[in-house]
Amino acid sequence: MGRYFRDIYISVFTVLKGMYVTMLHFFSKSVTVQYPKERLEIPKGSRNQLLNIIEDCIGCDQCVRACPVNCIYMETIKSFEGDELGETSTGRKKSLWIPSFTIDMAKCCFCGLCTYPCPTECLIMTDVYEYSKHDRNDLIFEFADLDPIKAAELREKDAIRKKEKEAAKLAKLKAKEAAAKAKAEKEAAEEGKTPEKKPEDNPDKKTDNSGEENS
C-alpha cells in the first residue's frame, strides 16, 4: 500500500517536474535559424566547393595526382617559343598553357588533399556549400579561361610539335641503332668468338622451359 502511494506521488511529482522543464524551454532562445534567410557562419578550414584561381595556376599537375578519387582533370600544353604567359601573383613564371581544368564536384570526397600540394595556393576550398543541381553534369566545373579557338590552335601546334619531336626521336634512335650496329659489326670483325655465344644459350633455355611444362 505504501508503495502504491509512493508510486502515485513520484509520478505526479515527475510529471510536474517535466512540465517545469518544458516551461523553461518556452522562454529559452531558439537554437535553429531560419536557414535560407539567415545563415550560420561556416567554421574556418571547412571543406566545401573547390575553386581554382586559374590566373595563378601553373599547371604543375600535383593536385591531379593528389586526388584520391580522380575528380580533377587537367590538360596542359608546353608553351612555345615567343609565348608570353605572364607570372602568377606570387611572382612565379608560368610555362604551361592550360586549355582545360575540370573538377567533377559530384565525385569529390571533400578530403582537401588537392589543396595542400598546390605550390601557388590557387586551388582552394571556398565556403560555398549550396550548389545542388538538377543534372549531375552541371556539377562538373570548368575553370580554364582559355579561348576555345586559341586552345584548338594550341592543340594543333602541339600535335605538330609532338610529331616533329617523335620524328626527331625516331631519327635519333635510328642513327643510334645504326651506330650501334656499325660498332657491333666492327667489334665482331675484330673478334670472331662473341656471336657464337648466343646460339649456345638459347637451346639451354628452351629445354628448361619444356621440362617445366611437362612436370
Partner: peptide, 13 residues
C-alpha cells in the same frame, strides 16, 4: 508553435 518552442525551435514561420 508550442511544440516548436518546447524543443527550442520556432515552429511554422
Amino acid at each position: 508553435k508550442v511544440a516548436g518552442h518546447v524543443q527550442d525551435r520556432l515552429g511554422p514561420m
